[in-house]
């Protein structure tokens, strides 16, 4: 990755009068580019029939994942949804592990046993991707309860979409976390559509997460989810609050997915021009412009892009060459003894 020494002379990226600083900004940009390139590659591989099953892409929502992950401390824990490739990659899980799982190869993150919707890498703090809407909000509460009980300083961060805000587990978890003052952050990625239906058509309030915050004694927070700096700063504040024992936060990030809900969805339900309007606020594009404004040299930015593309290209070739899962894992890890025996 490009370093500070590549900076243009006299650039604003020296970090003066800025709370983020150039190193972190470059990391935020690289993280977004990794997600963009890997997700686009997943889509291309799907068109080649090499990504099987379903997949839910985060194209257009990269800034949320990058901003929250880059503000984390080592040991902080992520709980993701089935739209979780982005959050998994943002914690540093290798691209080839993610693509390998999507391509159902033996080199995949879970060797093909979980699939796109269940990416898990505990060594990176990715405590699972949950495909039943709302299920992981209470689970993140439990992780945070453990931290509180054991005196650990880690924060549990739970990502979910706007559609989750209308399911019971969302409300149970918010109340539970608030009453127990748990170090958990609830992050709603409001991309305007639950699956195919606009969230606004089926929700009694304008902001489906933030407008419910008051019900649980929490601050109403709505941010620009396409601005990685805004996300990063908001995340940092929320983590500090959680670590200080001042309880949970609920953050609604306004964003937009550039693709359909899942690979089966061409997203024909969107009004004409909406996608184009949001693409003007493409998080990767606006962050690139910001780096230039802060004086980061074009060659540094291009260097990151070239490096990431090579990572994704190499990962793609590795996955294409990888064998399918070995059949002997079919019955492993049903129970903790490693096997599946239910009788003697």
């Amino acid at each position: 990755m490009a370093r500070v020494s590549d900076r243009a002379p006299g650039a604003a990226g020296s970090g003066l009068n800025d709370d983020i600083g150039e190193d972190k900004r470059l990391a935020l940009y690289r993280s977004q580019v990794v997600i963009r390139e890997a997700e686009q590659r997943a889509f291309d591989l799907f068109l080649q029939n090499l990504v099987k099953g379903t997949s839910h892409l985060s194209l257009g929502q990269e800034a949320v994942a990058a901003g929250f992950a880059e503000a984390m401390q080592p040991g902080d824990l992520s709980f993701c949804t089935y739209r979780g490739h982005s959050h998994t990659l943002a914690r540093g899980v290798p691209v080839e592990k993610v693509l390998g799982e999507l391509m159902q190869r033996d080199n995949g993150l879970m060797r093909g046993k979980g699939g796109s919707m269940h990416l898990t890498s505990e060594e990176h703090g990715v405590m699972g991707s949950y495909a039943i809407i709302g299920a992981h909000l209470p689970i993140a509460c439990g992780s945070a309860w453990r931290a509180q009980y054991k005196g650990h300083k880690d924060v549990s961060v739970c990502f979910f979409g706007d559609g989750t805000t209308n399911i019971g587990a969302f409300h149970e978890a918010l109340n539970f976390a608030a009453v127990w003052k748990l170090p958990v952050i609830f992050v709603c990625e409001n991309n305007l559509y639950m699956e195919y239906t606009p969230i606004g058509e089926v929700t009694a309030v304008q902001h489906p997460a933030a407008d419910r915050a008051a019900s649980y004694g929490l601050e109403r927070i709505v941010i620009d989810g396409n601005d990685a700096d805004a996300v990063y700063r908001t995340a940092r504040t929320a983590y500090d609050k959680a670590r200080a024992g001042r309880g949970p936060s609920l953050i609604e990030c306004m964003t937009y997915r550039h693709s359909g809900h899942s690979r089966a969805d061409p997203a024909k339900y969107r009004p004409e021009g909406e996608l184009e309007k949001w693409k003007l606020r493409d998080p990767v594009k606006i962050y690139r412009e910001r780096l230039l404004q802060f004086g980061v040299a074009e060659k540094v930015i291009a260097g990151i892009e070239t490096e990431v593309r090579k990572v994704v290209d190499d990962a793609t070739e590795t996955c294409k060459a990888a064998p399918p899962p070995s059949l002997d894992i079919l019955t492993t890890d049903v129970y903790a003894d490693g096997g599946w025996a239910w009788r003697n």
Binding site: L77, P138, G142, S156, E172, N175, F176
Partner: peptide
């Protein structure tokens, strides 16, 4: 004591179990 929130009870138990309790 918990609220009457069975999903929160079991979900919290799971999150705690996953991470060491």
């Amino acid at each position: 004591d918990t609220p009457i929130s069975e999903q929160a009870i079991l979900g919290a138990a799971m999150g705690a179990a996953m991470t060491g309790l």
